[in-house]
Design a protein around this nucleic acid. Sequence first.
DNA 1: CAGTTAGGCTAATCGAAATTAGCCAGTATC
DNA 2: GATACTGGCTAATTTCGATTAGCCTAACTG
Lengths: 205, 205
Amino acid sequence: MDTRHRILDEALTLFSERGYANVYVGDIAERVGIKAPSLYKHYKSKRAIFEAIVEEMNKNFAEQAKAMQINGRDAAADSAIYREMSEEHLVGLGRQLFLYYLHDDYNKRFRKMLTIEQFHDKDLAAMYSKLYVDDPLSYQGMLLGMIVSSGMLKTDDVEIMTLHFYAPIYYLLTICDRDPAREPWALETLDRHIRQFDRLYGRER
Amino acid sequence: MDTRHRILDEALTLFSERGYANVYVGDIAERVGIKAPSLYKHYKSKRAIFEAIVEEMNKNFAEQAKAMQINGRDAAADSAIYREMSEEHLVGLGRQLFLYYLHDDYNKRFRKMLTIEQFHDKDLAAMYSKLYVDDPLSYQGMLLGMIVSSGMLKTDDVEIMTLHFYAPIYYLLTICDRDPAREPWALETLDRHIRQFDRLYGRER
DNA sequence: CAGTTAGGCTAATCGAAATTAGCCAGTATC
DNA sequence: GATACTGGCTAATTTCGATTAGCCTAACTG
């Protein structure tokens, strides 16, 4: 990784731990292994580093969103996946979603950074909403909608059903961000959540 | 309200909007209607103001928790309330909980401040978890447990049931904190959530 | 090889924000 | 009525952190 990217990487780590205002350019430089003034050979200002991070992440997420849509379409085409969706599959789906959000390193640090910075800036608030609130909900809604079409799950209101699926995942995620020691408990709770979700909305009802 | 309290009040407002590091003592003073150096007649330092807020809130919440326990005991004694718990009652309960958290002014500002500051400090993270994650869950768990005992709702796993009740409320709350314009939508969604919750766990199933 | 660029460094500079010093008026106390 | 306290002010002072200036070396470029 070249210095330019190392700077973004280390800055993101620090911003996610302490927030923009509590990180000094000297801290970033030190982590990168250079002196503060040298940063300015790469970025015009501290603010510019922050903005580069946001821009970079925006780009990544856009790509990822595109990939997910393709995935979604594939899944729709191959609806056999959903016809054979068992409780175990559903647990797997939720776990995968959760672990991706929890452990993907960029995602995790960026989410923590946005959590801290969201109230300073409308744009960041909107970004947080989009990435961690609205987009996952709409993606999950699409998948669950297909499962409902296949008859594996039943509901009059897919939107609320999706909320019932995703809100606990989001809740557990924020807990783990705050306190990674609770991760094992969160994973176990996640499984119980999804099994109960399946029983509530599933055929046996 | 005396100056000492006015300082805490205005500081809390500012900290909740911008976070500790982005608020200058001059800003606080200006809001209070005095000059920055005069603040030091009341508090030893900027940090001391922050700490006084946290301490004050801790005290308030402790009192409130005690009151809720008393409430809880009363409710347990008078379990008729729960024997006659209709869907409308449940909607009312959820709405009340939600609106209290959303609109109680101290609560709201303090929650936003903790959201911003939680990653700087273990103690603040613990406080956030307690106030907005664990305590509400355990309180709601107690109430739902009583409703289950009364036979109005059925489940094998009250803990997950409580998660299913509270996580969507928490999720909607964080959305409104970020963007108050979504409040009407959140309230409507909240009602639909609780009605569906009632149908899922309720007798009709 | 001379010239140029990239990227590092040390030593300023600049500006902002927290805090301190020291003065003063009003008021409460003895 | 003198004394001392409270809470305000203006004018420093101190500190710290972002940024700039200017120098240097290595590597690339013609």
